[in-house]
Design a binder for these strands. Structure first.
Length: 526
RNA sequence: CGCGGGGUGGAGCAGCCCGGUAGCUCGCAAGGCUCAUAACCUUGAGGUCGCAGGUUCAAAUCCUGCCCCCGCAACCA
């Protein structure tokens, strides 16, 4: 059995979660669910990165301690992910002193023993108004744009991680063991390596950063984000502490799902850190793009930040339309766009009118036959399915979710509707009628399985309504799609369907929606 | 010359690696059907494939140059 360890980046909880956070968790969850359905043994970890100056500043602004701030915000992430059906096995918090801190400190010590950390003096432009270092980008005519005054040059001590030593090793690693998906990101990273790596600042003086993990044996220094945050991937497994889950790193295929902004840290710093801590490198880095909102970069100043809870509310708490949208619209690798118009179009045009409606029309007709369903015989569909499964599998394994959904799931639903039109079962009687309806029912059974990684709840509802014997078990982590299930007519014990229930109810009519602003108010107000 | 992604009918995309009647979804128009969630099906209109050169019997597809949009450029998912 293949072991898989999948992680996402850990989120920064200085504010409520937004669509960008959700995109990553949904993509990772689809991967993970697909792995489980194939029969892989999977562990899936998500979490929060809770230290740093921004948390410190936000907390001060809100008159809270950093700890109070994160304890207030972290549940927002946890609740949201639970409502979205993110099937994580562990939610790790970097403020966790039992599991996380000891691992990080041990890792630091190992890097020090390996002479990979060096204390240096760093000189930067510090604005006392912002209480932080500014980059050249922040300056307008040499002044801090916020406080309209020149920053002062400040020198401070930092530990540096000597990443520059590892350039050659990293090149080899990235060409062989550590695979970056998609390929153009790999090329980008290799091109970057050609310029050579620079050493990375790994700590701050306690005076400028107090909210973080202390540097061992140096009371005046606190760890900066990289050593702290990246280490979550192994601290959550009990590395250097109880060692309990270590096999999930050592014997599994390790996949990190992250955004393009932090690609270089995961591609370069992280494996170099692990190397000097005596831990093997991860296997795969899956880099997704960002979400724009209504075609523009999502930002607070533009006021187009989409709140996930508004999307959930729009669909009466059902997470599946959003999960479908994100997997369907955002190809792994490139950027995608979130648009209210588009998500409604997909909901109405695809989920409701194609898939939901097909299920309903079949069930309504079967009800008139006492809900009995007979073994399907339609040879054309049998052949179609034989073709769809391997191609769907290929797309899923390549993280091409958009193709998996459009070319296979949606295409099948459309084929089902065409078949209805062609055979007109409502005009038939007896065996003829039963055979046609049995065939379309069987197509829906396959659609339900194909949808399972993307829309687990919906997939199960379809199978439950169809009365498929295994339907009740579909949401269990141990549920595996067997060859029999993939075979046309492969579910022998299937005898009767249940009552039809509308899967995707109609939304407000567009003209009414235009008259009632509340739906859009959420993302238009700052 | 910092790096990368993209420019295909009204909208969103596929095709480009491995040249050969330009495809899909939505929208629009007409027709059909009535089992179904004002759903479903069929047909049609609409494109000089960013621009300019080149290679070739033949280029959206290969080569060269240019223009435009977007993202990243080290700590903002």
């Amino acid at each position: 059995m293949t072991k898989q360890y999948v992680t996402t980046a850990i989120d920064y909880p200085n504010a409520a979660p937004h669509m960008g956070h959700v995109l990553e968790k949904v993509l990772a969850d689809v991967c993970v669910r697909w792995m489980r359905l194939k029969g892989d043994d999977v562990r899936f970890q998500i979490g929060t990165d809770e230290h740093g100056i921004k948390i410190q500043q936000t907390a001060a602004k809100e008159k809270l301690t950093p700890k109070e701030l994160v304890d207030r915000n972290v549940p927002l992430f946890q609740d949201l992910y639970a409502r979205l059906g993110i099937s994580a096995d562990l939610f790790i918090r970097t403020s966790d002193r039992c599991k996380h801190w000891p691992t990080v400190m041990e890792l630091w010590k190992r890097l020090q023993e390996e002479k990979m950390l060096e204390k240096r003096t760093y000189t930067g432009l510090y604005c006392s108004g912002c209480e932080r270092f500014l980059t050249k980008k922040d300056l307008v005519d040499g002044n801090c744009d916020v406080h309209q005054r020149a920053p002062e040059e400040v020198r401070e001590e930092n530990y540096f991680f000597l990443l520059s030593k590892e350039t050659a090793w990293l090149k080899k690693l990235l060409k062989k063991e550590y695979k970056i998906v998609p390929t153009f990101r790999e090329n980008e990273t290799l091109a970057l390596l050609e310029q050579g790596c620079e050493d990375v600042s790994f700590s701050r003086p306690k005076s400028s950063l107090s909210w973080g993990i202390p540097v061992p044996d140096d009371p005046n220094q606190v760890m900066y984000v990289w050593c702290d945050a990246l280490t979550n991937y192994i601290s959550g497994l009990g590395y250097f502490t109880d060692h309990e889950m270590k096999q999930w790193w050592e014997d599994a295929t390790v996949t990190h799902v992250i955004g393009k902004d932090i690609a270089r840290f995961h591609a370069l710093i992280w494996p170099a850190m692990l190397k000097h801590a005596g831990v093997r490198s991860p296997d795969r880095l899956l880099i997704h793009g960002f979400l724009t909102s209504e075609g523009e970069k999502m930002s607070k100043s533009l006021g187009n930040v989409v709140k996930p809870e508004n999307v959930l509310a729009h669909f009466a708490g059902n997470p599946d339309p959003l999960r479908f949208y994100l997997s369907h619209e955002v190809p792994v690798g490139n950027d995608g766009d979130f648009s209210w118009k588009r998500i409604d179009e997909l909901y109405i045009g695809v989920l409701s009118n194609k898939i939901g409606n097909l299920l309903n029309r079949v069930l309504v007709l079967l009800r008139k036959e006492g809900n009995e369903i007979s073994v399907p015989v339609d040879a054309s569909f049998s052949q179609l399915l034989k073709d769809h499964w391997p191609r769907y599998t290929e797309s899923m394994d390549a993280f091409d979710f958009s193709t998996a959904l459009t070319d296979h799931v949606v295409a099948l639903a459309m084929a089902g509707n065409v078949k209805m039109e062609e055979k007109k079962p409502w005009t038939l009687t007896g065996t003829e009628r039963a055979e046609v309806l049995g065939g379309i029912g069987e197509v829906l059974r396959h659609i339900s399985l194909l949808l399972l990684p993307f829309m687990p709840e919906t997939a199960q509802k379809i199978s439950l309504q169809l009365g498929v014997p295994y339907a009740g078990k579909m949401l269990e982590k141990s549920f595996v799609i067997t060859d029999e299930m993939k075979t046309w007519g492969g579910e022998k014990g299937w005898k009767a369907v249940s009552e039809p229930v509308i899967l995707f109810p109609q939304l407000e009519k567009p003209e009414n929606a235009a008259l009632s602003p509340p739906r859009r108010a959420g993302h238009l107000s700052p």
